[in-house]
Simulated assay, not measured.
Amino acid sequence: MLKPSERTRTNARRGRSDPTLPEAVFWKFLRDRRLEGLKFRRQLPLGPYIADFACPSIRLIVELDGGIHALRAESDAARDAWLTANGWTVMRFAIEAVLTHPALLFEAVRHHARLIRR
């Protein structure tokens, strides 16, 4: 796997210090191993990319997609392909879902974690 560049690391640090509202809400439920005892990291640099939330132990990335992602479908697909080729599973959720139905998102992540741990 490619080592993240200094620029990628700097952008990840900036994302951790100034999260969007949906990211802050989602992180509140993921931090401190609150979800299935899994340790998640936020704004994790992976090669040339930054994962919104990543759980290295089960190689899971959770992405929260805002409206801009509708315009970036092709680059998101290339990004997901690179991450998948490097052994990660990517789950994408609309940011609106975090604010309106967060329990559904957490249940989807729980379900995936249980499948992986079997």
Rank of each mutant, 00 (worst) to 15 (best):
V62K: 02
P56N: 06
S75M: 11
L2C: 08
S75T: 15
L115Q: 09
Q43G: 09
G47A: 02
E23K: 00
A12G: 09
P56D: 14
N11S: 08
R92H: 10
L115K: 07
P48T: 08
F53Q: 00
E96F: 03
R92F: 00
K3R: 08
Q43Y: 11
E36G: 05
H101T: 10
P45F: 11
V98Q: 02
A51L: 15
D65P: 05
P102N: 00
V25A: 10
P48I: 05
P22G: 04
L105E: 01
S75F: 09
L38F: 04
S75C: 07
S57T: 14
V62W: 12
Y49C: 14
F29V: 13
E74R: 10
E6P: 03
N86D: 02
T100Q: 11
E6F: 07
T84I: 13
E96N: 07
W27P: 05
K39I: 09
R114A: 03
E36D: 15
M91L: 15
L35Y: 10
A81W: 02
T20S: 12
A81I: 09
T8W: 03
A73Y: 10
T8Y: 00
L105F: 01
R31T: 01
E74Y: 04
D18Y: 09
E23N: 02
C55K: 00
F29A: 14
R41A: 12
G37L: 01
H69M: 08
R9C: 07
A77F: 10
E23C: 05
F29W: 13
P102H: 01
S17D: 07
R42S: 10
A73L: 13
R9V: 10
V98G: 03
E96T: 12
A73D: 11
D80S: 14
L64P: 02
A77S: 14
R110A: 10
E74F: 04
H112C: 04
E107G: 05
L35V: 09
I95W: 08
L38N: 08
S5D: 06
R41I: 01
F40L: 12
L60W: 08
R114V: 07
L44T: 15
K3H: 07
A51P: 15
L115G: 06
G15L: 14
D76P: 01
R33A: 15
F106E: 03
D65I: 13
L44D: 05
C55D: 04
K39S: 15
P19R: 03
A81K: 13
F106Q: 06
R7S: 09
R33P: 14
G87E: 08
R59P: 06
S57N: 07
F93Q: 01
A51S: 12
G15Y: 05
A78C: 03
